[in-house]
């Protein structure tokens, strides 16, 4: 005879299942939590438990030129890439999200293809292409801001498309008809109805593209130049030699920046839907 009733067994099972799920969840979150924790450690050499807490490492982080410049370059590249991706992606999404036509999925496939090309492969290919380009035209592309921006735009376009198409597909076609019925032509309808209604998606797409560009590592590795490094690359090259609270402070800055942008974006359009 079991001492436990069916009900208490089930309750036990449910609790242990929740415990298991949360442990797996912790596995996901813990490294980031630790990075933020270490960024406030008083001791220079990372060891647990800490001897005390300080915010000096953040000042230290900003004093390192490669981090400061990397951060600024990343901001610039991501902002430009995000805007370019919107400029290219919104018109495409307006067609693909609202019309059915032969070849629609082929066009969508082409625009989404940067997602399936691995970063290292794509980066190497673009790098070699830029060098060949430079040989042919004497216009330098590799290790320049425009070159980096173009490459980042390529990887941001699919994310813009995903968010925008998902939003426009769910747009009631009767809204556009209602607008035209009330005397608005196609252009007025586009600017007075379609785009305003899709505004949350546009904001979310912009933020998401920015983040995708900001955190890119593999593609950028090939396209940065001496003294012209993005923040993730600066972090990786620093980490190859040292692990100290300074780098954790840098990582914390990135976590806070990206985290707040994603939380803002999520208020407009549920981000998990973009995956």
């Amino acid at each position: 005879m079991s001492v436990l009733s069916d009900r208490s067994l089930r309750r036990l099972g449910r609790w242990s299942f929740s415990g298991l799920a949360l442990a797996i969840f912790a596995f996901l979150i813990l490294p980031l939590v630790c990075v933020i924790w270490v960024a406030f450690f008083a001791n220079k050499i990372v060891s647990f438990p800490p001897e005390g807490y300080t915010i000096d490492w953040f000042k230290n982080a900003l004093a390192v030129a490669s981090f400061r410049d990397g951060f600024l370059l990343s901001l610039r590249v991501s902002a430009l890439a995000s805007l370019s991706a919107l400029a290219l992606g919104i018109p495409a999404a307006l067609l693909i999200g609202r019309r059915q036509f032969p070849g629609r999925s082929a066009i969508m496939g082409l625009l989404m293809s940067p997602l399936v090309v691995p970063g290292i492969v794509g980066g190497a290919a673009i790098y070699m292409f830029f060098i060949e380009w430079e040989v042919a035209t004497e216009i330098q592309m590799a290790a320049t801001l425009p070159g980096l921006m173009i490459a980042h735009t390529v990887i941001a376009v699919p994310w813009t498309m995903r968010v925008m198409v998902a939003s426009l597909v769910s747009l009631d076609p009767a809204l556009e008809e209602a607008s035209m019925n009330l005397g608005a032509n196609r252009w007025v309808t586009l600017f007075k109805v379609v785009l305003p209604v899709a505004r949350p998606a546009i904001v979310a797409a912009a933020l998401l593209s920015f983040v995708i560009s900001f955190i890119d590592l593999e593609l950028s590795l090939f396209l940065v130049g001496p003294g012209r490094t993005t923040l993730p690359i600066a972090i990786v090259s620093y980490l190859q030699w040292t692990l100290d609270p300074t780098i954790c402070a840098v990582a914390t800055i990135q976590i806070v920046l990206i985290g707040s942008m994603l939380l803002i974006a999520d208020r407009f359009v549920s981000i998990s839907k973009a995956f």
């Binding site: 009767a174 809204l175 008809e177 035209m180 019925n181 009330l182 032509n185």
Partner: peptide, 20 residues
């Protein structure tokens, strides 16, 4: 004529109110 030159008033099944 295009819809926007016809001057008809339509009530849609989904109402199609502009959400913004």
């Amino acid at each position: 004529l295009a819809p926007y030159h016809r001057n008809t008033g339509m009530v849609f099944q989904s109402y199609a109110l502009f959400p913004h």
